[in-house]
Design a protein around this nucleic acid. Structure first.
Lengths: 367, 367
DNA sequence: CTGAAAGCGCTTACAG
DNA sequence: CTGAAAGCGCTTACAG
């Protein structure tokens, strides 16, 4: 509260109001508002008058006052975007595309980082949910990783027009997700086509739905090629105490257990003679790549690697990484489309509530 | 304009108004506003009454309507952030920190990407400048790379409370920049301390002020150690037709001329026997590293490399990269501090108008 | 402290 | 089409 105390009166905006345009054009305020804001009903303004009004508005550089519109009951044309950390390698482009798509439908986004800003108190997620209410956002896009805290149900309660990136695990919630089953299938298919015969899968957590979907894709694609599936070719990160990446709130650095990636190589390459690994994401792949080189194991000659995400990192490591692109731009388009429908008052049926984006294989040199 | 047509009446916000709180607390609207918004002048509300009002507000979950405040002449408590591309490796964390610092002073940021969204027309920079005016932002933070278009002078004219990241080359403009001279000095000093004797400098453009500052740092630090400076140890990217990174607007990929990095190695390592290179940024370093490996030249044994930026990429390449951290969090703090001063109506003198952030060397394995 | 009032810029229903 | 009016939620100056 104290932060809002004693804020001075503040007036910097352009002084041109609708009434100024009306006067300058020699028409009524109603007529000016009608042509500039697209009045309802059939036009009762002649084309000549309308274009004169538009000319005057342009000449005076009239900019409608959004706060006044909002106060009168119109949409604020703002959307809240919740994300663990907007600079986050896993999310920064999704966030950018969400904004670009929002701009296309005449909206702006309010960014809200739910980690890395201890100044707003312990529960940054809830803090931003309330802030969004103060600002009167039309809807919310939530792209916070599932392993970060935040009361998603309360968010949905406060802002019914919310679309999630990845399932929040709440019945009836609207969300866009990536087809993980297909992601692994196209990776495995590609590796088989390249002649690999012992393909390993290294993921973080097989108990989470996203991990289960990956395993399903792995099993199905191997079966489709009449390959036997061996449990020992599946490596589960959390079984050796791996946890999802967290940001060190003091240094701002993302911590990654590079040393533990050796365990993946021990389990899959040394013990099981894997000649390919479908990895949890590009970061796992990059780290595994480094450990393989340190042991004198060549990529892709001895072991092929496929990542997941298609972060630009993939093009900078050596060799450049074959990976599955998550199609963030498509996901952003669909999230905006869904939230706009909800704002317009449409009720989404079950088929419209969930959208699965098809991932795409990007072949580089690691496979 | 057409995008704003026929927008329906829209009311989703919490129905609790200031007057509701006042009624529930049994006080006047004035008293409620006074304690909740920090009234001016000495308190004429008893402590007991004040805490009762606050309790009621909290119980009813009262959220002030920012649009109404703004309409009445208060600050909107929003800041516009202009950036070429928010997901951009060179800027994503700066953007995140700007938002975090804005939140600390009770503001929110509006993101605006000036590239990658052809839907808003050819001049996305100007488009967003006008959009910011409609929204009534209190100030603008401009972090668009200097090689991207945009009328900075018009921005400053429309939004006098603007702070730039990097000098816009406009007299009296307020900006925060990184001490590039010092950045190169600490890199060179470190390499000399590690026993390097032929230290090369590879930068994009020596005609731009930022390039000149780097060269100055290079010359000065070598001179401080009684090293001769040789022009041939300085490589200038634009001399071989290198250009600043651009984003392919269709694919969204950032294009980098990996193949041309061989020219750096030819010029500095092969011809001039350099045993160390201070590189333009982490991306140059990563690409040079890859080319060196392909030629069988070892890093750091044969050639040491130092980057510039401390992107998280630096920790993922092999070997991890020694680099100069740009201290984005510090830069963001100072940008917010400056813009807040301007908003408060303070006039900044010349010393306050420009802030030079001290970079910091991060030593990893490439040197 | 209270109470009644004005006004920010807009949208909209209403009578002509 | 015009013109006069109400009202969104807030802040603030004013008379008590």
């Amino acid at each position: 509260m104290s932060i809002e105390q004693n804020s001075p009166i503040f007036e910097k905006r352009s002084p041109v109001r609708l009434v100024d345009v009306a006067k300058a054009a020699g028409v009524s305020r109603w007529a000016a508002g009608y042509v500039l804001n697209g009045g309802v009903g059939r036009s009762r303004v002649s084309n000549e008058t309308a274009s004169r009004i538009r000319d005057v508005a342009h000449r005076l550089n009239y900019q409608p006052h959004f706060a006044a519109r909002q106060l009168r009951g119109k949409r604020s044309r703002t959307l809240g975007v919740l994300v663990a950390s907007a600079g986050d390698p896993l999310r920064s482009f999704l966030v950018q595309y969400l904004d670009a798509e929002a701009v296309k439908v005449g909206c702006r986004t309010f960014m809200a980082n739910t980690i890395g800003n201890p100044s707003v108190g312990p529960n940054q997620f809830d803090f931003h949910v309330e802030q969004f209410a103060r600002r009167g956002v039309d809807g919310v896009l939530c792209a916070v990783h599932h392993w970060f805290p935040g009361d998603r149900a309360a968010l949905l309660d406060r802002h019914p027009n919310t679309v999630f990136y990845e399932s929040p695990g709440i019945p009836d919630a609207a969300y866009v997700t990536v087809g993980r089953e297909e992601a692994v299938r196209i990776a495995v298919r590609h590796l088989i086509e390249r002649g690999r015969r012992r393909i390993g899968l290294a993921v973080m957590d097989l108990s989470h739905p996203s991990g289960k979907a990956r395993l399903r894709g792995y099993d199905k694609e191997l079966a489709a090629h009449n390959f036997a599936t061996e449990k020992r070719l599946v490596f589960q990160g959390n079984s050796i105490g791996l946890a999802y990446a967290k940001c060190n709130e003091e240094t701002g650095a993302w911590e990654f257990p590079h040393d533990k990636m050796d365990r993946v190589i021990d389990a899959l390459v040394v013990d099981q003679k894997a000649d390919a690994i479908v990895t949890h994401d590009d970061f796992w792949a990059a780290s595994i790549l480094r450990s393989l080189r340190a042991r004198g194991i060549r990529v892709p000659e001895d072991v092929a690697l496929v990542g997941y995400l298609n972060h630009y990192l993939a093009d900078w490591i050596d060799p450049p990484l074959t990976t599955v692109d998550l199609q963030h731009r498509v996901a952003a388009q669909q999230m905006i489309e869904m939230v706009e429908k909800m704002i317009a008052g449409e009720t989404l049926d079950d088929a419209e509530r969930v959208s699965v984006v098809r991932p795409k294989l990007i072949v580089r040199s690691s496979s």
